[in-house]
Nucleic acid binder design. Sequence first.
DNA 1: GCAGATCTACTCGGATAGGTGGTGTCCGAGTGCCTTGGG
DNA 2: CCCAAGGCACTCGGACACCACCTATCCGAGTAGATCTGC
Lengths: 158, 158
Amino acid sequence: MKLPEGTEWVLHCAASLAQLADGDAASTASLATYFGLPPAYLAKHLASLVRAGVLTGTTGPRGGFRLARPATEISVLEIVEAVDGGADPYLCREIRQQGRGALPAEECQEPCILATTMRRAHEAWRTSLASCTLADIIDTLPPEIPDRTRRLLSRESA
Amino acid sequence: MKLPEGTEWVLHCAASLAQLADGDAASTASLATYFGLPPAYLAKHLASLVRAGVLTGTTGPRGGFRLARPATEISVLEIVEAVDGGADPYLCREIRQQGRGALPAEECQEPCILATTMRRAHEAWRTSLASCTLADIIDTLPPEIPDRTRRLLSRESA
DNA sequence: GCAGATCTACTCGGATAGGTGGTGTCCGAGTGCCTTGGG
DNA sequence: CCCAAGGCACTCGGACACCACCTATCCGAGTAGATCTGC
């Protein structure tokens, strides 16, 4: 069970975008340079965030990505599930209904207790991530960081 | 993020082994027949449980697998991590220290807040699974099930 | 000087190859039970 | 009848191919701004 490597990338990218001034955007190239990442592959993951409604992307000069909503309304869970897909890691294939020991269908009205246990754990994971927003993240940063981020992500810093 | 398909297999196998009489064992072949699974691949996963100390395997006639400890002392978490490896799904590569925006090492004494958030969620997941033992699982089964399991897993039922 | 059309450069988005880890299978080493022969 | 030695069938454990998904890259479609020309 492992998350795509791009998960860390988009989390840091989203946190950086949350530090920009309203209406400002950062391109894939500038974010890739900022974190030392492969630009083409990073673009693929950022596109996933756009599809999920977390970011908006504008083309043309001065374009790039920005948050689709205020940072207080974007949870870490949304970002992670946007890049990972959000499927339950445990997939119940109902093997209790297969093989020699197959239970009759009428005894399987209720979901498998093991699947329920695994689902409950996954819900605990999701709840933990849903309770943390991007605003919570940047609130923990030292106060001088946002200025630094804005400066280094701007085009004039080339 | 997905768990190996064998996770469901070993969970059901462990739950079935917990229903056997003390000292009794079930072979890979009988478990594979019971659930309609590929025997060779199932054996691979059961071997993982032996390495993790959840099961013990005895060779020779009347051999097979049995629980290494009482069902009350085996958590679902142990079984899942035995087959999956138990690594944190989120791997922090410290990209905050790379690229143009790299932070100096002295500002990175404390772990990355994003990594901490992801770790906290993983701990919530682990805690949820650790609180459920095999005994809890079989306690929820209808009372006639253990007898049925013992009967269908025994060698004489060929 | 100003307005409009054009042109350019920059941006995202999807379609296209390659590598790593899970999936699936096989065969060999080891062990406990059963048989069989003798006492 | 009892015992011991040999044979055997059954079991697990590790080593070997295959396939799907993540990784990585490229090029094309579209757009906003800048430029240039004519009025």
